[in-house]
Design a protein around this nucleic acid. Sequence first.
DNA 1: CGATCTTACGGGATTCGTAAACATA
DNA 2: TATGTTTACGAATCCCGTAAGATCG
Lengths: 300, 300
Amino acid sequence: MNVTVKQLKAFVAVAKTRSFAEAAELVYLSQPALSISIKNLEETVGGALLVRSTRSLALTPEGEAFYPVAERLLADWDDAMLELHNLFSLQRGKLTVAAMPSFAGHQLPRVLGSYRELYPAINVTVHDVVAETVVDMVRSGRVEIGIAFYTENAADDLHFETLFEDRFVVALPKGHQLLEKEAITWNQMKDFPCIALQRPSSIRELIERTLEEKKFQLSIEFESHQLVTIIRMVVCGLGVSIVPSLCIPQIEQLGGEWRPLKAPAITRKVGIFTRKRYPLSTAAGAMVDVLKNSTQQLLP
Amino acid sequence: MNVTVKQLKAFVAVAKTRSFAEAAELVYLSQPALSISIKNLEETVGGALLVRSTRSLALTPEGEAFYPVAERLLADWDDAMLELHNLFSLQRGKLTVAAMPSFAGHQLPRVLGSYRELYPAINVTVHDVVAETVVDMVRSGRVEIGIAFYTENAADDLHFETLFEDRFVVALPKGHQLLEKEAITWNQMKDFPCIALQRPSSIRELIERTLEEKKFQLSIEFESHQLVTIIRMVVCGLGVSIVPSLCIPQIEQLGGEWRPLKAPAITRKVGIFTRKRYPLSTAAGAMVDVLKNSTQQLLP
DNA sequence: CGATCTTACGGGATTCGTAAACATA
DNA sequence: TATGTTTACGAATCCCGTAAGATCG
């Protein structure tokens, strides 16, 4: 026979109140039920913890020694249960997210705002890293959720859920002559110096693949590994560039202009990476929901 | 609904083996029973701890976080139960005893020897103090057991159990002329210088009461508060003394002689003091038994 | 198809509450 | 006698094991 939590709670209640009758109320039991519960406990542990005559109730030395131990056991027990319950009810917990810079820069803060409003006690850690690293971090388990462009090399062990399609745009400095067009074709760009992301980069790859397939030509005169730097270069008049539409807020903020890219337009799926076969925490699940809701509203 | 110890043990077993089937054996349950146990646990805590598809089993992040906590809870629990069980089965524990010097000096070591042989893991602390202090220490709860002469002022809140009657004897130096007698009367002593315990002392009181009642006279020329000192003084020829028979081994050891005291013989009950209304520990109860057995053999 | 977990269900043990008996001041 | 605990017993609940069902690789 094994000692149960109930029995220990019963014992502590009796030891605390020095009365079976009072203790019975504390543990929501009838007095006889409590009596038997204590009796069973004493049988299990092999000796008396309480000495009761109808008129007085005392703890045996063993009971006296065990009383504080039992209290600590129960306190630890309840603490652990409460902690776990909080974790599930999102009243506590932590969550790690990785997002590529273009997303981390503008959409993510708003998403985090909504999330914090819903679950103010969840501790969220954000890693602002390039898309490739996002995938690596999800794969290795360093983050639960990754937000980045879709990439095929994640297909085997990662799960991807699309949030939206990002249509690439052409970033231009103020007063640029291409601004006259509603949308800009690849051919129209070939006469202007271009600025591109350094290799290796998924965006650069996508652009080069299109160039090759369609036999287009672009004169790439500057390179950088940071999109924000490229945008700054564009704004300074060093050239034009093809960037994800996610960067539009940043372009406008830095004083640049943009036009849609067409013939062909290129798009890239932006979405959520998670590990296959590894379940999400409740906190992460909630974040996925918030992400889906937020982006649905942002890009109709 | 409340989390039970069994449920936690079930969870830990599954988390450890990563298999319901194996875990079921560990906790002596059928697989379905284990399954339901885990299900109930998850319902209680408010979320999933394990994610199981028929072919793979993984811990959720919450389960992962809870796993070590659960292990520690169970370890603490089992430790506490084992400790308590050891206390009752006398495989561990501590016991404090107070004994008056005359008893502590010769009988007690043998008693402790028997006790240790029976219960080698019980830690026994002995306080070697005068009889009055023995009673005080029992009353205040500083010791569980006291061994001393009986005294009336303990009657109200202490329990006394007689071990044996101590018949007082006359201590004499070697070659003393009273040694010719088989037993010595009070009248025969009046011509010799006497050594007595200092007041206040229960032995001194007993002797003086007898002197008064019977109108005997003794010339008390030396006093000491230690029986052993008195015996030494007797051995050195400074006088004779009336001492408890408990001191006989000590007299002989120090090279003295003794004869029974009569007309009237005086006796004093030696026994065990314990607190009323405060139950004894198992260890103390065992000591009482050993004491009763030992003294029964020593003084038939 | 095979290994593994879950659901269904009947039997058995445990536990509960009411009522009566019991013990102490 | 009055208060408070234990025993007695019927009833409800919980828990277990067997058997059948579901699911994934």
